[in-house]
Design a binder for these strands. Structure first.
Lengths: 151, 151
DNA sequence: ATAATTGCAAAAGCTTTGCACGGAA
DNA sequence: TTCCGTGCAAAGCTTTTGCAATTAT
């Protein structure tokens, strides 16, 4: 990616934050950029460790706070399917996830056709604002490894 | 419920546990019974507090351990849609849940038609063993309350 | 200049672990 | 009698909080 393009994206993120009434601090821009560039559904700790070298003074509390803020602003989504820790996804469009019970990572699960919009709205008195389709099982790599071990 | 019927259900639970290779201790029977009789998706702490009066020596560690055991044996399911704590459901048949962001309780969500079985099995290299459909929003009571407050 | 944000340290939950004792089979 | 299971206390993590110092606007 060109230097100019990188700068352009950074500016776009800054504008986005200011439109939300938030200050565009280097920490927030970096966290947002990390999430957009790493679609691995990172945990808070993973984001923290990835950015710590570039921001030696970065604190976990800041990462927690920023993620909560971005989530409430609808810029990212909180994933709860990993029972051990929070994970975040900058892709807020509807898609299913899978939690691999072997490597404990979260993957996008392709090919799940759900009529997401039909589920939102009112339903038997409930107001449905958000839907997640979560799976648990094995990712391709762990599945292959398990087959090998059995053989 | 008659005394005989209660005893009968207790015996059935004991048999079920022994078939799984587990000892039928009073604590385990009580936890299982509580989950079957309280379909409120209780947290570990809720189960602990409910049973503590009848089992003054009961420990949280025992509740945690028993729930993990029962889950791995497929007798109950772990729900992760409440980001603050684990909840459990003795109903292991496919059904959707809703997390009310106001009262923070978990409800069964009626009327969601998902072809659950079609989602299980192999899919693009992934092995899908379990599926959850989780929603966030407002339960009927909190929704009514919010409408009232707005008026 | 001013108000929002960060970073630190401490605290607060939730969950797990190790081990001696007790109880189910 | 033999192990499995329980309870306790301590530890381990994840997440939150309060506040003084810093920084974006």
């Amino acid at each position: 990616m060109e230097r100019n393009e990188r700068q352009k994206k950074r500016d776009e993120r800054a504008v986005k934050l200011r439109r939300l009434g938030l200050r565009a601090t280097p920490q927030r821009l970096a966290i947002l950029a990390y999430l957009e560039e790493n679609r691995t559904h990172p945990s808070v700790e993973e984001i923290y460790h990835a950015l710590k070298p570039r921001f030696p003074s970065l604190s976990l509390a800041t990462v927690y706070g920023t993620l909560e803020l971005l989530e409430q602003a609808g810029q990212i989504q909180l994933l709860t399917l990993d029972p051990e820790r929070r994970r975040y996804d900058s892709d807020t469009t509807p898609h299913a996830h899978l939690y691999c019970r072997s490597c404990k990572r979260v993957y996008d699960l392709p090919g799940v056709e759900v009529v997401w919009d039909k589920l939102l709205g009112e339903r038997e008195g409930f107001l449905i604002e958000q839907i997640w389709v979560d799976a648990a099982g094995l990712c391709p790599a762990c599945r292959a490894k398990q087959d090998r071990d059995k053989a």
